[in-house]
């Protein structure tokens, strides 16, 4: 347990304090005391503060996790603030304070029982051991290379570290989940409890699944995101550094990829690619709220061991209003 241990004094580990019971009353009615207790012992790290991750942080701090560690070296810019409600705009001089440091203060305010702190530095500079401190790592606003590297580090620890990525590009958002080998118990209809085991691929393995082996109706957004990702990677662009002027290059890339993957190009409509390109790194606050809410719920599920987790991609598109789960993994041969 983190800092809340001192706060709660000498109470037995098995009981929540009166303070916790009063504060968490409504949610304990949803997921129970045991889940709440496990939640309060979980340690989460978030790298890349965006509108979506700010939403996520708010949600898990309110829920009462043990600790939250933020990492983002950026200084405050207009873009960084567009979908972020954690930074007051009251004319204070932010000075040399990083985004992570500034957000820390607001988050602490949301729930004094959660320990919120920040780490300086860049995600890639830390070795594997650093990640042992956490039960879950959330990566936002990062290149596909960074995602892969961090995912591998999380997978190679003695104790599994859950790994998530989250991207919101204007009208839609994507969540990726890697819980490695995840076991949880679940109540069945007749009231008994069964054990469920799930095996997740790494982000690298998921992306490598040949497109023609994917289930029939995978959302077009999945393919569009892979094309954009590839584009950003091979053109040395930063995350979200795209514009409509990239369309012709993107269409060439689409042709190339579809040919090699034996996928009909109509699965990645031009209009959709245009939309993603135009979005760049901009976020649309309602989409952040939805994606940040869903991600919050997923992390709460995994940390409390309660509820069926998403495997392994989730998309929300404000154009059709659907929130869809996609399983992008090689089916295990039976």
């Amino acid at each position: 347990m983190g800092s809340d241990e001192c706060e709660s004094g000498g109470h037995k580990a098995e009981e929540l304090t009166a303070q916790e019971t009063a504060l968490y009353d409504r949610q304990i009615r949803v997921w129970g005391v045991d889940a709440q207790r496990r939640l309060s012992k979980s340690h989460i790290m978030v790298s890349g503060i965006t509108g979506a991750t700010a939403e996520f942080c708010k949600n898990i701090v309110l829920a009462g996790i043990g600790s939250l560690t933020l990492m983002d070296q950026q200084l405050v810019t207009e873009e960084a603030l567009q979908a972020n409600f954690l930074i007051p705009l009251d004319g204070t001089d932010y000075g040399e304070k990083s985004l992570a440091e500034l957000c820390c203060n607001s988050l602490r305010d949301f729930n004094p029982m959660v320990q919120v702190s920040f780490v300086s530095g860049n995600l890639l500079q830390f070795d594997g051991e650093f990640f042992d401190k956490f039960d879950a790592v959330i990566v936002g606003h990062s290149s596909s290379t960074t995602k892969k590297i961090i995912n591998e580090k999380c997978r190679n620890r003695p104790k599994p570290v859950a790994f998530y990525t989250v991207d919101c590009r204007d009208s839609f958002g994507e969540i990726f989940v890697d819980l490695q080998n995840y076991t949880y118990s679940k109540k069945t209809k007749d009231g008994s409890t069964t054990k469920c085991c799930m095996t997740y691929p790494s982000i690298e393995d998921a992306i490598a699944v040949p497109w023609k082996e994917l289930p029939k109706r995978v959302t077009k957004l999945y393919f569009a995101m892979r094309v954009i990702e590839k584009f950003e990677h091979s053109n040395g662009r930063k995350y979200g550094e795209t514009g409509v002027s990239d369309l012709s290059d993107i269409l060439n890339l689409r042709k190339e990829l579809c040919a090699s993957q034996a996928l009909n190009e109509s699965h990645i409509p031009v209009k959709l690619l245009e939309r993603v390109l135009a979005a760049g790194g901009k976020e649309h606050p309602p989409v952040c709220s939805i994606i940040g809410g869903t991600l919050g719920q997923e992390v709460i599920k995994a940390m409390s061991g309660k509820g069926d987790p998403i495997k392994n991609y989730y998309y929300f598109d404000s154009y059709d209003g659907k929130g869809v789960i996609e399983d992008i993994s090689i089916p295990i041969a039976t």
Binding site: R26, Q27, R29, K58, A63, G296
Partner: peptide, 10 residues
């Protein structure tokens, strides 16, 4: 009524 922040946010 049971209530959690995440559903409200969504």
């Amino acid at each position: 009524v049971h209530a959690v922040a995440t559903t409200n946010a969504i």
